[in-house]
């Protein structure tokens, strides 16, 4: 048995173990790698950064804890950027297992607002973010496509009450806020096919500016919508989150994870090359044996 045969018979668990050890080493090692900013992420940052105070940004957090690894970093960075710049945020969670997680995330970000910070050379004082004034969390309703269409008429149709059971009409932020026409933009952060609904039923039907943040698995399939101008920005997976954190000068878990990603990808590329070499060498050997057998 030569090295190529051994390569083809290697137990996949050794690959997993090797990858885990390398990831742990890269995680423990204290160094940073440069983050290349893509224009499709920068366009979202610039859009929010140039909004006047008091504007309303709509952030549908359509994901559940299974996708929070990839999508939480962008949510944290965008919501904090909005609040620091005194931009109001309207939130829904149209994934059935997401409302509790979204509520917790909002509380976490509200807590971080209690600390004064400096981002991109601008100092922001500490301030208390008030529910109903700085943000409204509408919560969950089933059937996202129908909810998106209904919100195009009035947010009050699917959501007469917010997530906490308060009538929406009694919230100061909702005065004069009726449908998508009253928003600066919507940034859909989604781990499900809700993004399709937002593109077709939301932007397609009502024509508001839409950007998306999606999981790595589905990033490639949404790039055509960027080229056609149906969305003005796209953040793909943890890398998209890391780029946004870099732009917002607010490093978090995504940027911290990029060095581990780098080494993990290198290892996987090496294994893919080794696997291919082993495969083709084995095929060649089998063909040679068949020829000699004849």
């Amino acid at each position: 048995m030569n090295i190529f045969d051994r390569l083809m018979q290697i137990d996949r668990r050794w690959v997993f173990l090797f990858l885990v050890i390398l990831c742990v080493i890269a995680y423990v090692a204290d160094f940073q790698i440069p983050i290349l900013i893509e224009p499709e992420v920068e366009s979202i940052f610039t859009f929010i950064d140039t909004l006047p105070k008091g504007s309303v940004v709509f952030i549908p957090m359509d994901y559940d804890p299974g996708s929070m690894a990839e999508l939480h970093p962008m949510t944290y960075a965008i919501v904090e950027q909005c609040w620091r710049k005194e931009i109001k945020v309207l939130i829904t969670a149209l994934s059935q297992n997401g409302p509790g997680m979204a509520d917790q995330a909002l509380r976490d970000i509200a807590d971080s607002m209690l600390v004064p910070k400096t981002y991109n050379g601008v100092s922001y004082p500490a301030r208390e973010v008030v529910n109903g004034v700085d943000y409204v969390f509408l919560g969950y309703k089933p059937y996202p496509a129908l909810v998106i269409l209904a919100m195009g008429q009035d947010f009050r149709l699917p959501f007469p009450l917010d997530y906490y059971g308060t009538p929406v009409d009694s919230l100061p932020m909702m005065r004069g806020l009726h449908n998508y026409n009253d928003l600066a933009c919507a940034i859909n952060i989604s781990g499900t096919n809700a993004t399709d609904y937002w593109i077709s039923y939301g932007q397609g039907r009502f024509g508001f500016p839409l950007a998306i943040g999606v999981t790595g698995v589905s990033t490639a399939q949404y790039y055509p919508y960027l080229g056609s101008g149906q969305i003005f920005g796209i953040m793909g997976g943890m890398l998209g989150g890391a780029e946004y954190e870099e732009l917002a000068d607010n490093p978090g878990n995504a940027k911290d994870a990029m060095r581990v990603q780098l080494f993990a990808h290198l290892v996987i590329i090496a294994f893919v090359i080794m696997g291919n070499i082993g495969f083709f060498a084995t095929v060649r050997k089998r063909k040679r044996q068949q020829r000699e057998g004849r």
Binding site: C23, Y27, V217, A220, A257, Q261, A264
Partner: peptide, 26 residues
């Protein structure tokens, strides 16, 4: 090429989940 791009993003997604769990544990 399209499938390759999707595969690359998928690898990143799966590693992201593992990194997030490492961050949680740590």
């Amino acid at each position: 090429i399209g499938f390759g791009a999707s595969f690359g993003f998928t690898v990143m997604a799966r590693i992201s989940l593992f990194i997030n769990r490492m961050q949680f544990l740590d």
